[in-house]
Design a binder for these strands. Structure first.
Lengths: 340, 340
DNA sequence: TCATTTTGCTTTAACGATTAAGCAATATTA
DNA sequence: TAATATTGCTTAATCGTTAAAGCAAAATGA
């Protein structure tokens, strides 16, 4: 790391000006009429001296860092973990750096992260926004900072967005239970005003209404993100005491925790109560009953989000708006059965 | 992001030189005899203009980026995901930025990542090294680049390291099975030359030897990282056909996949074959039998690694060597039973 | 042959910060 | 009162890169 070779070193070695070296190494040699001969010499020496550019210096001039900030709820959550992984790969191949940050669904933390990343001069953001962060998003929008929302969106804001049709997906999930003869379908979601959760809820209600299953009794349980364990245990108990024959979990973490609590109460419960979940969780493989789930095209989401973002960063300020709605799929069979 | 305020703007507004502003905002006002009055003015104006420093410019001068590179096998793996999360938090509070990269246990990818991060001028590395990366680590060492190995280490290299005593932990895990009357204890590990896996293997062998259970028949199955599904299915089948009464999995991913295959073969298998795993996996909660596991102090590992690294970055080149060996624990009971 | 164009390069300024060195004006000491 | 010390600031160099503008020398055209 010490005594790094700079453009100057190469220039001295070859006997030309720094500018010429810069032109050649940036592929602007032709354009600036650098002779083939000199170009070759420069490239050779650069290789010999193991040159790589100082990005701080470059950023200082270009005002671009080739770095983007990714803000999710929690990188340790399997859904966001895999999303992050796909974004990492896509960014790596585009020669972009990603800084991952977890907001813990907390607006204050989110604000601090935004400041942190802004100070780091990121060129843009990919954000899975926490509840109540609308004003911060609005501010980014006003400042014309390149940004793509992912997973979560705000109905009233016109920002780039890559995600799925939560209403339809929820309809799909709920209908699966209905088609399997379930009559009392409970559901467990987060106590949150995020619109995508709202859509999932609406999809559930719509499906029940269409099937004439909407009950007077409230079979909907809303759980606090910060108090998952306790509230889930309670919710499960209550739903069971209400004699539900199915439970639809609105996220994979909810499903993971909910299933855990269900099994604690009764090992054979999944033969009595059908379950559907949003998103996959490796843990589902451990149950003796297959848990159907809504599969999001996470790789696709990651790629699209990154592509939109990078395009906007490159194109500058007058970018158009992209709202991408990807297809989900309801997985009802184990994909990798005993494969030998 | 546009029209950012610079030191110059503040200097002009207050009517002083840029230098003075720099001194004050870096807390070097006292030392450089800036009058209290001027200092206050500078601070006020900086706040009013919403100043934050341009890190590219600063890095150019200081040759420090306050950025570290974290290289793990796969950020989507629960073990590394949670490690990454703790490192993220620790770094955030120290005002360091972390760039996460996944090597996929592939030396070529590892090399490319190393280049990528070096080009990004990271100040140092935290590395869970893939098999065969010893020479690259040696090179970093030779270049005196601050670095801490985590989880995996190289017996022949004298580098900083934070991890656990794999031999002892393995002994612990295997003894647990022995103490539970298991006589034919199979084990499944990766086909890898990484020393920490070697230690785990040695611990297993030592435990069997001490108990006089070392068999003529080979109960050890080695799995290729890249072909987990197929090879695991085979390994499980073979171990079962050899009539093992226990299986010890050397990582949580191995356990996850192995248990899946075991259950596919026989839903009640865990009542016949005892299992112990290295590292926790949320999926274990879904089994009707509790799976004991070796718990690594991940948060502690993250903190120590970051502290050692940051200290070395600050102190410069003549740092001492740290090898930290943290205690593990064998968890034999579900910690969060129905907690209501 | 002289004006014009093209070729191949260099000069110079800029990006925004840090930091050693310098320099008046004022205060202190002998 | 003159020499010295302190206070409060500024100047200038530097980090490594980009890029607009400029400038000889060689090639082309009339």
């Amino acid at each position: 790391m010490k005594n790094k070779t700079s453009l100057k070193d190469i220039a001295n070695a070859v006997g030309v000006s720094i500018t010429l070296v810069s032109y050649v190494l940036n592929g602007k040699g032709e354009k600036n009429r650098v002779s083939k001969n000199t170009a070759k010499k420069i490239i050779d020496v650069a290789k010999k001296l193991n040159y790589y550019p100082n990005l701080s210096a470059r950023s200082l001039v270009t005002n671009k860092t080739r770095t983007i900030g990714l803000i999710v709820a929690d990188i340790a959550n399997p859904f966001f973990g895999s999303l992050a992984r796909f974004i990492e790969d896509a960014a790596f191949s585009k020669d972009y750096t990603v800084i991952f940050c977890s907001s813990d669904e907390n607006v204050n933390k989110f604000d601090r992260i935004l400041n942190f990343l802004t100070t780091r001069q990121v060129d843009g953001f990919i954000i899975a926004a926490p509840e109540g962060s609308g004003d911060f998003i609005k501010k980014l929008e006003r400042l014309k900072i390149p940004m793509v929302l992912i997973d979560r969106y705000f109905k009233e804001l016109k920002t780039n967005f890559v995600g799925i049709d939560n209403f339809q997906s929820s309809l799909l999930a709920t209908n699966h239970l209905i088609n399997n003869n379930c009559k009392k379908i409970g559901t467990i979601l987060y106590l949150s005003k995020l619109d995508h959760y709202g859509d999932r809820y609406d999809g559930y209600v719509e499906a029940l209404n269409r099937a004439g299953l909407m009950n007077k009794i409230e079979l909907v349980k809303r759980i606090n993100y910060g108090n998952l364990n306790r509230e889930m245990a309670l919710a499960i108990k209550e739903l069971i005491s209400l004699n539900v024959d199915a439970i639809y979990f609105h996220t994979n973490i909810l499903a993971q925790e909910g299933l855990k609590q269900m099994i604690i109460l009764d090992k054979n419960i999944l033969h009595k109560i059908k379950v559907v979940a949003f998103d996959q969780n490796p843990a589902f493989n451990f149950l003796d009953t297959f848990v159907p789930y809504v599969l999001q095209p996470v790789a696709e989401m990651a790629n699209q989000a990154l592509t939109i973002l990078c395009d906007q960063i490159d194109e500058g300020k007058d970018f158009k708006l992209f709202k991408t709605c990807l297809q989900t799929e309801l997985i009802t069979k184990s994909a990798d059965q005993f494969d030998i």
